[in-house]
Simulated scan of single mutants.
Amino acid sequence: MARSMHPALDATTVRFPDPRFPAGRGYLAACTLGIPATATVAAVARDLERWRDGVNSPAEYTAVLERARGHAATLLGANVDRVAVGSQGSVFVALAAASAPAGARVVVVDGDFSSVVAPFLAHGDLDVQHAPLDRLAEAVTPSTWLVAFSLVQSATGEIADAASVIAAARAAGALVLIDTTQATGWMPTDRLDADIIVCHAYKWLSAPRGAAFMAVSDRALDELVPLTAGWYSGEDPWASCYGPELYLAAGARRFDVSPAWHAWAGAEAALELAASLDLDAVRHHDVGLADAFRERLDLPPSASAIVSWPDPEGCDLASLTAAGLAASGRAGRARVAFHLWNDEEDVDRAARALGR
């Protein structure tokens, strides 16, 4: 793995708000779209200049991607040869759905993000069962083939009891798929004993959209069918560009999707920064701000960096936007998120915008 380009930022020197995100004041939408650090902006600008000047090369992009793969492995607590790269999380989930035996029972969260659910529904002949998040472990039975859920729910910010769900799945012999797109970057996700962990990096990791990754267990490596196999799925992509043979890497690279190079130029810098952080400290900071905002709204404290509350007419979202704050609305609820670039001033501005 490449040596960090950010030696000044380690477990003992995390500062909030992080000065490498100068545009973060009033930005409460990391759960929708992260904003880039200065290093990420510089990496993207440098890549565009080199592309313009005709000096970029596929070999250089491959080196960038492999460094990014290493940082993704760190964030998910996986061996690098068990990490695949792609452009969208739903593509990785779709591989799991396409690999399911006909009629297999799949348990998902009722109201989870569509990318975690739709591929199983689109399969057409799977027994898809929807369960409330707080009863997900109970819904796993000996007939369950796979249980899939987002670690942090997009609409509400609720955090799944991953340990209990995984324990139930292991007892039933079921596979476990976890989407950490709304978690990786603000909380540690390197201790999940799952078979498939999927993450898109454009939210809390603040990478350009178009950079996603997946970690797989040995069992998943054996059972998933690499239906998206292409020239980049071989052990050496440059030796697997043409048929007639099928070239598949021994490890998770067999699930690689040909990378969107420009996105990964920025993602390498973003993932390197995230992998260098003390994510327990980040979680403490983010949740502390979220709970301070919840207190102003007379909401109970939570373990989540996302604050969500009913806003069926969109009035609160409109008030936040009118005050110059970036927020979002999902499923009839207003939603704000606190991250590296926020501090107590952002909490106060948001609360005052709502008359609190």
Rank of each mutant, 00 (worst) to 15 (best):
S206A: 15
V116C: 10
R15N: 03
C315S: 14
P17K: 11
W51F: 08
S164D: 15
D218C: 11
V108E: 07
A327G: 14
S328L: 08
A274I: 07
R209A: 14
A137R: 03
A207W: 10
E60A: 13
G124Q: 14
F255L: 04
A327T: 07
L248G: 12
E138S: 04
A274Q: 12
L277H: 09
A281F: 00
D193K: 11
G251D: 10
G251L: 12
V152E: 04
W204K: 08
V225R: 03
D81C: 07
R170G: 02
A305W: 07
Y242G: 04
G332Y: 08
T156I: 09
E272Q: 14
I35W: 04
A162P: 09
F255A: 01
A267G: 06
L340D: 00
L277T: 04
V287H: 02
Y202N: 06
A39I: 04
P119R: 00
H130S: 12
R67E: 15
L227A: 13
G111E: 13
F92M: 10
P300T: 02
R25M: 09
R335H: 06
L95H: 13
T156Q: 11
C241D: 10
Y27E: 00
S206Q: 14
A337Y: 01
E345M: 06
R50L: 07
Y247L: 09
R191V: 06
N79W: 08
V347E: 08
V128I: 12
R20L: 13
S302C: 08
I196C: 05
R191H: 15
A8T: 12
G103I: 00
A160Q: 11
P101L: 02
Y242A: 12
L320E: 01
A30D: 06
L227M: 13
A263M: 01
D112T: 05
A2D: 11
A167K: 03
F113L: 09
D343V: 10
S115H: 13
A331V: 09
T141A: 11
P36F: 15
V147C: 07
D127Y: 04
L273D: 00
A122W: 06
S4H: 07
T144K: 01
D256Q: 06
N56T: 15
E313G: 13
I197C: 05
A84H: 08
